[in-house]
Design a protein around this nucleic acid. Structure first.
Length: 858
RNA sequence: GCGAAAGUGGCGAAAUUGGCAGACGCACCAGACUUAGGAUCUGGCGGAGCAAUCCAUGGGGGUUCAAGUCCCCCCUUUCGCACCA
């Protein structure tokens, strides 16, 4: 490839018509001329960014940035994300890796339908047009994606396999249909997963509260993997702690006990979930959620209670809609009924309370006011009994309540368990409850199964039909999965999209009406489509084998590339995409499709791009267009600025003036490189080295060391780039010495060659241009990364600060590697030090080898 | 309320292990060159002071020969969670 490429370089360079005047101070590099020229060249060679075979002998490296939604235009957040990924991918190539660096489109979703309504353009057309525009922008930015394996989730060659995996999940019992209460966004006209509800509002409409609706929907059984998802987090030490914590909280695993309380004068029992069974002797009431079945049963016999519960539910709904659930005051109402504490036979009143969540645990609790803050608050309000049963020791009298400590606490007034430690009692009492048939140790999760049905058009059709008449094993109207041979279930093109409720596909008879694949009788297709987060849960596997027409991918190919070595994206996906795709990977692992059970070894979440202190958004009017920046300063400068301004994990405050600085820097490099380009052709390599030459080489190798270290470690590209700037400042200062050849020509050549290579990951067009100018062989970003020479980087002198009582007095210069005694002598004989020591008594002298001398005086 | 991260010049920031606070860049100031340019080059640029020197990393305490960095308390900002029994 490189030979062909070198020829192309020659052709283009020769064809250029604006050869700059060498040595001119006003020489300016023109990104507008350089960048499109190289872009055209790269675009014409699809093999340029393609990964090599598995037998390439190189270590593999899978570098992945999160795929965008094709909204129509890249924003600065994208540019930043991709600039980071691209620098890394190019660097890994130069370090001799076989790199997979793909890009695709998360192309299903509601905005396409909204656009269709607004502009009367079909979603498919709108989406594909946007993809074309954004792909062009990415190319303009010079991003090194392998476009031959591009993945577009809304095309049948992709969603066919999303359907296929769904069928596998159905077979494995992981996909099921159930009626339940679901979050409904009236603006989106569809249900939402729990993960898509933010502060009680829709994730797409931040100020619009979701409603609860009873619907029959498809679910994926992510809860089956709750423990695996949780335990897996411990091994993901290449993920930010913040993301791991968010996922742990989201999963919300909680170990406890189910305790069954008998209801007085009733055959019914009420089951409560508690993590503190050790406090059960202090239970002074049972609290039911307003939506609890027993609440309903009691209310049915008691109109007053029914009205009160009704009001409670209404109030809660209002609070949710005001987006202020947290502020709602606890209140409740007694049912007049009693439950029996199975541990001591005590009768406790049954209440209904608004702070009991219907969908967590059993929707009922035992209330222990002395040892739970919420129960305490509630009991105080209603004057319920507060009975203390745990304390630091058995004799404690005065104790501030509620007392919620469980480590180092012991039980009081708790029958045969009195005096036991809380933690031990928890185990023993659960066992006792189980042995006596009124309790079970239980684990509860906050995580709920993932509702994936959406009442929208622009999504992956669900490959299921409902057999009208039914047949053996299937009742009339029952679910029948389609066979693999029926895939893909194509999304019909001509669909009227309206804002009215119900799935748009339901209004397309040709789609709905079909035949049952088992009995051949009439059947109706499922008309909901799937949540787009399903599409993006496995897209990165498809890159490994994007053209496969007989399977989602060949396992052998996926197993070569996975896990992803570095995944880069925004933190906003911490518990959406990133938990779904972990789940999906575990499922595919269990289905035998992939070897690993985690998709990505390392995750990096970059900071936001902000302007005037706020996230860029159209509504705030503070959006900076990448296209405009490229026009003004070029893609290289724009990308480099995004990396230079701030470390990649922090928020970036966009300041266009800073971009001007990068542009000037590149200009300087351009002028200098061209001025000395003849050095690369010089045959005069015999000249000896001079002090000035040695100094320049030292700086060069120090810079190289630093950048190499930054790439493998902290990714502080801002300091990598400032190190290159420092180097260039020194090169510029050395101009006279280079002109006079005091610095040998061979050294000049080495400096510029290395400089261009170091710039290649950050400014690819620019580096390619200069590489061709200095006669570099092959493609610059496939050229091996230069090796830093530790010996050349070694300083021959060191600057040792000298302090008196910790305050800096002077800095002494001394030969590098000098003995401590010599450094001490140099410090103590320094004129400034001598003057300051006059009349003082030296108590001791602290020597930090190679770093500092501190003289402690009295 | 709970949890996490952060707070350093006019601005973005740097300081790898407790060891010269402010690298690099922006803005600004002065100068040079000029067929005036949003070009380039040179120098300056935390505060006070003529200077020696002193003060300074959100505030207050502490540990240490030495603290932006470690410990304690407080303030502010951002993010996440928010009755999860």
């Amino acid at each position: 490839m490189s030979d062909i490429f070198a020829n192309k370089i020659g052709t283009v360079a020769a064809a250029r018509n604006d050869a700059p005047v060498e040595g001119s101070q006003s020489l300016r590099y023109s990104p507008a001329e350089i960048e499109p020229r190289w872009q055209a060249l790269w675009d014409a060679d699809p093999s340029l960014y393609a990964s090599e075979g598995h037998d390439s002998g190189k270590p593999k490296y899978y570098c992945l940035e999160m795929l965008p939604y094709p909204s129509g235009a890249l924003h600065m957040g994208h540019v930043r994300n991709y600039a980071i990924g691209d620098a890394l991918a190019r660097y890994m190539w130069m370090r001799g890796h076989n790199v997979l660096h793909p890009m695709g489109w998360d192309a299903f979703g509601l905005p396409a339908e909204n656009a269709a309504l607004k502009n009367n353009t079909p979603p498919r057309e709108w989406t594909l047009t946007n993809i074309t525009a954004m792909r062009k922008q990415m190319k303009r930015l010079g991003l090194s994606y392998d476009w031959s394996i591009e993945v577009t989730t809304c095309l049948p060659d992709y969603y066919r396999w999303t359907q296929w995996i769904f069928l596998k999940m159905y077979d494995a019992g992981l996909a099921y249909r159930k009626k339940s209460k679901l979050n409904w966004c009236s603006l989106c006209q569809t249900v939402l997963a729990n993960e898509q509800v933010v502060n009680g509002c829709c994730w797409r409409h931040e100020d619009h509260p979701v409603e609860q609706r009873d619907l029959t929907q498809w679910f994926l059984q992510i809860t089956k993997y709750a423990d695996e998802l949780l335990d897996g987090l411990d091994k993901l030490d290449g993920w930010p702690e913040k993301v791991r914590t968010m996922q742990r909280n989201w999963i919300g695993r909680s170990e406890g006990t189910l305790i069954s309380f008998a209801v007085k004068d009733s055959p019914e029992k009420v089951s409560v979930f508690t993590t503190r069974v050790d406090t059960i002797f202090g239970a002074t009431s049972v609290q039911l959620a307003p939506e609890h079945v027993m609440t309903k049963a009691f209310a049915a016999e008691d109109p007053t209670l029914a009205a009160q519960v009704e009001e409670m539910i209404a109030q809660q709904k209002a609070a949710r809609e005001a987006g202020d659930l947290g502020a709602i005051e606890k209140h409740g109402v007694s049912t007049g009924r009693f439950a029996v504490n199975p541990f001591n036979g005590e009768l406790v009143p049954i209440w209904v309370a608004n702070y009991i969540l219907a969908d967590y645990g059993t929707g009922a609790i035992m209330s222990v006011p002395a040892h739970d803050e919420r129960d305490f608050e509630f009991a105080q309000k209603y004057g319920l009994t507060i009975k203390r049963v745990v304390g630091p020791n058995v004799d404690t009298d005065d104790l501030a309540l509620p007392y919620t400590v469980e480590d180092e606490a012991v039980l009081i007034d708790s029958g045969e368990w009195t005096g036991e430690s809380s933690l031990e009692a928890q185990g023993k009492m659960a066992t006792f409850a189980k042995a006596n048939g009124f309790g079970t140790p239980t684990v509860t999760y906050r995580l709920k199964d993932w509702g994936v049905s959406r009442q929208r058009y622009w999504g992956t059709p669900i490959p299921m039909v409902y057999c009208e008449r039914g047949h053996a094993g299937v009742e009339p109207g029952g679910v029948v999965p389609l066979p693999e041979s029926a895939l893909p279930v194509l999304l019909p093109e001509k669909v009227e999209i309206t804002q009215q409720g119900g799935s748009p596909l339901g209004r397309v008879p040709e789609f709905v009406n079909t035949t049952c694949p088992v009995c051949g009788g009439p059947a109706q297709r499922e008309t909901d489509t799937r949540d787009t987060f399903v599409d993006s849960s496995w897209y990165f596997y498809r890159y490994a084998d994007a053209k496969n027409t007989t399977a989602p991918f060949a396992s052998e190919k996926a197993n070569y590339w996975f896990p992803i070595d570095q995944y880069i994206g925004g933190v906003e996906h911490a518990i959406l995409h990133l938990i779904y795709s972990r789940f999906w990977t575990k499922v595919m692992h269990d289905l035998g499709l992939v070897a690993d059970d985690e998709p990505a070894k390392r995750l990096f979440t970059q900071g936001m791009v902000v302007k005037d202190g706020a996230k860029m958004s159209k509504s705030k009017g503070n959006v900076v267009s990448p296209d405009l920046m490229i026009e003004r300063y070029g893609a290289d400068a724009t990308r480099m600025y995004a990396l230079f301004a701030v470390p990649p994990d922090r928020d970036l405050e966009w300041q266009e003036d800073g971009l001007g600085g990068i542009s000037r820097f590149l200009n300087r490099v351009y002028r200098l490189t061209l001025k000395y380009k003849d050095a690369h052709r010089s045959t005069n390599t015999l000249a000896g080295q001079s002090v000035a030459g040695q100094q320049l080489l030292r700086k060069l190798h120090q810079t190289l060391e630093k950048i190499t270290r930054d790439f493998s470690g902290r990714w502080h590209f801002n300091t990598s780039i400032s190190a290159i700037m420092e180097l260039v400042n020194e090169v510029q200062a050395a101009e006279p010495a280079m002109d006079s050849e005091e610095i040998p020509v061979a050294t000049v050549a080495e400096v510029f060659r290395t400089l261009v290579l170091m710039l290649a990951p950050f400014a690819p067009f620019f580096a390619a241009e200069l590489w061709s100018e200095i006669g570099g062989k092959g493609v610059v970003f496939r050229t091996p990364w230069p090796q830093a020479d530790a010996e050349l980087a070694q300083d021959d002198e060191m600057q040792v600060p000298v302090q008196i009582n910790g305050k800096l007095v002077t800095v002494v210069s001394i030969a590098a590697g000098s003995e401590d005694a010599a450094v001490k002598a140099a410090a103590m004989t320094d004129a400034k030090v001598v003057a300051r020591l006059e009349g003082k008594v030296v108590v001791k002298i602290i020597m930090v080898p190679g770093r500092l001398v501190n003289v402690v005086v009295k």
